[in-house]
Simulated assay, not measured.
Amino acid sequence: MNLFRGIDVVTASSASALSFLVWESCTTLDDEVEYIWSKSYTSPIKWLYLFTRYIGLGDLVATPYFGYRSALSCRGWIVLQMGGLQAMVTLVEMILMLRVHALYNRDPRMRAFLILLILVATVIPATGMGLSASKTMFSPSCAVMHIDNPLTFISYIYSITESILLILTVVKCVHTSRTTLRHAPVIVLMLRDGMLAFFALVGRSLV
């Protein structure tokens, strides 16, 4: 009974998330076509947006096909979940870093710092997830029973990365507002979006 209950919970959660993503994609498709698809094929923002938008959708579609019949299929399922999470966080962080890079007038020193930051924020969590997945023990319903390497430190890395990006955004926005003696709409928008992204990603990583 516990096996089927566990499967039902996972399936229902995936179906709910998939339904919401499909609905949201359909309702905003016209804006996506106008503002994203029309961009040049060389635009990094275009591809980052599309990968970020649809990698979660693909993850949810693929999840039920892993089944729940053995420790191997459970491990494949958890690797898929971790890989999808890491890919989405990395892509979102790259979008935020492009915004910060633009705020600092594409300064080469800032670009080098952001490249180093994204490497650290990707390699360390991915390595930790891989090690944890290889040693994780599962119940028949694929619930995690034991994990040798807790993933708490990964949430700390995500939080530190987002904090750095938020600080860089706030500092530049405040400096620009003071030097121009006015609050430009684009600066206010970038500051607002930067704060929303910070709370969303940090909140997600701490759940």
Rank of each mutant, 00 (worst) to 15 (best):
residue 5 R to P: 00
residue 5 R to D: 14
residue 7 I to P: 00
residue 10 V to Q: 14
residue 12 A to M: 12
residue 15 A to Q: 13
residue 15 A to C: 06
residue 16 S to R: 07
residue 19 S to I: 08
residue 21 L to A: 09
residue 22 V to C: 13
residue 22 V to W: 07
residue 23 W to P: 00
residue 30 D to H: 11
residue 31 D to V: 07
residue 32 E to F: 01
residue 36 I to R: 06
residue 36 I to G: 05
residue 39 K to L: 15
residue 41 Y to P: 00
residue 45 I to K: 01
residue 47 W to N: 01
residue 48 L to I: 11
residue 49 Y to N: 02
residue 52 T to M: 03
residue 52 T to P: 01
residue 53 R to T: 06
residue 58 G to L: 15
residue 61 V to Y: 11
residue 65 Y to P: 00
residue 66 F to W: 13
residue 69 R to G: 15
residue 70 S to C: 06
residue 72 L to K: 13
residue 75 R to N: 06
residue 77 W to N: 07
residue 79 V to W: 10
residue 80 L to P: 01
residue 80 L to G: 02
residue 80 L to C: 08
residue 81 Q to W: 14
residue 81 Q to L: 15
residue 90 T to P: 00
residue 92 V to N: 11
residue 94 M to G: 05
residue 96 L to Q: 10
residue 101 H to N: 07
residue 101 H to T: 02
residue 104 Y to M: 09
residue 114 L to V: 04
residue 116 L to F: 12
residue 119 L to W: 02
residue 120 V to E: 07
residue 121 A to S: 15
residue 124 I to L: 08
residue 124 I to D: 03
residue 128 G to E: 07
residue 136 T to K: 10
residue 136 T to A: 12
residue 145 M to T: 04
residue 146 H to Q: 13
residue 147 I to T: 12
residue 153 F to Y: 13
residue 154 I to D: 00
residue 155 S to K: 08
residue 159 S to Y: 08
residue 160 I to E: 02
residue 164 I to M: 11
residue 171 V to A: 13
residue 173 C to I: 14
residue 177 S to Y: 11
residue 180 T to G: 00
residue 180 T to R: 15
residue 180 T to L: 15
residue 181 L to D: 09
residue 191 L to C: 03
residue 191 L to F: 14
residue 194 G to E: 01
residue 195 M to Q: 06
residue 197 A to F: 13
residue 197 A to P: 00
residue 198 F to V: 02
residue 201 L to K: 08
residue 202 V to E: 05
